[in-house]
Simulated assay, not measured.
Amino acid sequence: MPSIRPTDTDMLGLIDVQPCFMPGGALAIAGGDEVVPAINRLLAGPFVQVFATQDWHPPGHSSFASSHPGRAPFDSIAMPYGPQTLWPDHAIQRSAEAELHPGLDQRRIELIIRKGFRPAIDSYSAFFENDRTTATGLDGWLRARGIRRLFLAGLATDYCVAFSAEDAARLGYHVCVIEDACRGIGLPLPEGGDTIAAAKARLAAAGVRFITAADFVI
């Protein structure tokens, strides 16, 4: 039975719902476009308070494989802030692929956090860039609004959604990931398994709940 009815201390976070992460995009995620109608149903129903994030890279960003001669997408390198997965060029500032998906109902989005715009630091989390110290300002904004619980949806389950959820839990928010409104990349890991399973295990250990849209009272 549905059991969750969002209140004025709850907010929906839409993570990187951008064409570059959808079929046909530069960093396509299988089924990535399927999150748009799922999210729009949430926006038409239980949620009135919403923020979004947007990957927003300059050309030649340090996380692009093309910026490292001899390297290929999905290689890993050491950066000053730690290990960094290299990606295809994606989410280039002012490109159509970097905009929020045109089919997304944006009328309730109150704040858009742009991340990854610093050339030397990648950014997965809605709260911190990958050096783990450069804050986006989202935490302060949420606290000023009195938000205590976050519901996250978008792309990708194992990277930007997961890092955002993990940071939110560490900062003291109650966090739920809406699984059927997310899709993951699923890169294989050397030790076996993939990045989706590893992210879900890490988030569960941090106290993050996994729910579906059917859990909401409409």
Rank of each mutant, 00 (worst) to 15 (best):
L86G: 02
L14N: 06
G31A: 06
G186S: 00
G25Y: 05
A65N: 11
A52Q: 12
G13D: 02
F64K: 05
I15A: 00
P102G: 00
T134V: 01
E110N: 02
F117T: 10
Q84G: 13
L27S: 14
F128R: 15
S3C: 05
A26L: 14
I112R: 04
L152S: 10
T7F: 02
A96F: 07
V48K: 10
A91K: 01
F151G: 00
R149F: 05
G207V: 12
D180F: 01
F51E: 03
I113Y: 03
R118I: 14
E97Y: 09
R108W: 07
M1H: 08
R5F: 06
F163D: 04
E110C: 02
G103K: 06
A165S: 10
T134H: 03
P59V: 12
P59I: 10
T9Q: 10
A165C: 07
A78D: 14
L171C: 12
P6G: 09
D75H: 13
F64E: 12
G137V: 11
Q54T: 11
T9I: 13
A98H: 00
R148D: 14
R107N: 06
R148C: 14
G13V: 15
R183F: 00
A181V: 01
R143K: 15
F117W: 15
A198Y: 04
A197N: 03
H101P: 00
R148T: 13
D194H: 12
T136R: 08
H174I: 13
V175K: 11
S66P: 04
V217G: 01
D16R: 07
E179N: 07
G140P: 03
Q106F: 02
F64I: 08
I121L: 14
M22T: 09
R149Q: 15
A30W: 05
A199S: 12
V175G: 06
T136L: 12
E179K: 06
